[in-house]
Design a protein around this nucleic acid. Structure first.
Lengths: 149, 149
DNA sequence: ACACAATAGTTACATTTGAAACTAATTCAG
DNA sequence: CTGAATTAGTTTCAAATGTAACTATTGTGT
């Protein structure tokens, strides 16, 4: 029988690496700004592409609508995000950052980019490109495997 | 100001990829065998290195002791794992798979390896090595960043 | 026009997870 | 030796998450 060496098993390694990185990044903005990972992702999406509907946000950041709804509720309660009704389709509502939300976003973006830059120190410029390419192809392939052809 | 493009942001990409892969794999053994991700990881560690104490398991699979404790409780309730007291140090207890647990482990390992092989289809043999090397270095570096020198 | 399916988003309930407190056993300092 | 500090592991309580049901609105087929 083949042996499963967990420490060399790709799904396991990806999971451990992603978790470590995600937690490290979270440490940077959780304390000072009191945001959860999902809340920060919603803010990042809105900071770049607002106005977006909740579904748009979900599509962009690969998050289901319940999670988006909860994150948005929390952000609105803190006055970081506003909602304006869509008159064409009253089920929809477009979301955007408030001035306060924009300010926080502007604070956090450099922190996040700096962390990414520090992480990338481990790799050469060429290796960074290679890594990104490989991740893309793995992701595309994994999606294919999931909904079999 | 620099812009944060979430879809090109390394921590985000790693997180999305790892989650997709982890869920796909989970689909393979969750239904038929009713194991959670953490339970499966504990079984994988024991299948390969038993006997281990709970702390040993935690070290191997990068999981905190509370999670290990809960996973082990569930596995013992189902008769997949057994505990034998350590007479030298009665705080410790070494864990190992039961015959039933070993049988399930033997069922699942090929499924997991097959999934990994399918995933690796997206890459050439050389690229697989490169990816593993890059992940290793990122992981080591991310750990360094976390507990600053 | 009208019933019926589909879509946006929220709420409710059950399960999982995390942090901290707790128990029990061991080690170490004086 | 004895009491404080450590270590292994469990339990508890609160917060996060997933699933499914629900409301409200829009689209579709006949």
């Amino acid at each position: 029988m083949q042996a499963l060496e967990l420490e060399k098993f790709l799904p396991y390694r990806l999971s451990v690496l992603a978790q470590l990185v995600s937690e490290s990044l979270h440490d940077l903005y959780a304390g000072p700004y009191g945001l959860s990972v999902t809340q920060w992702r919603v803010m990042a999406a809105l900071g770049r592409f607002a106005p977006l509907t909740a579904s748009d946000v979900g599509q962009r950041i690969v998050m289901d609508k319940v999670a988006v709804s909860r994150a948005v509720a929390g952000l609105m309660k803190r006055g970081l995000v506003e909602r304006s009704a869509d008159l064409d389709d009253r089920r929809r509502a477009s979301l955007h950052l408030t001035p306060k939300g924009r300010a926080m976003h502007a604070d956090i973006v450099p922190l996040a980019l700096r962390y990414e830059a520090e992480l990338y120190q481990a790799l050469s410029a060429e290796e960074r490109q290679i890594l990104n390419g490989l991740c893309d192809r793995l992701f595309t392939h994994a999606k294919l495997l999931r909904s079999p052809p």
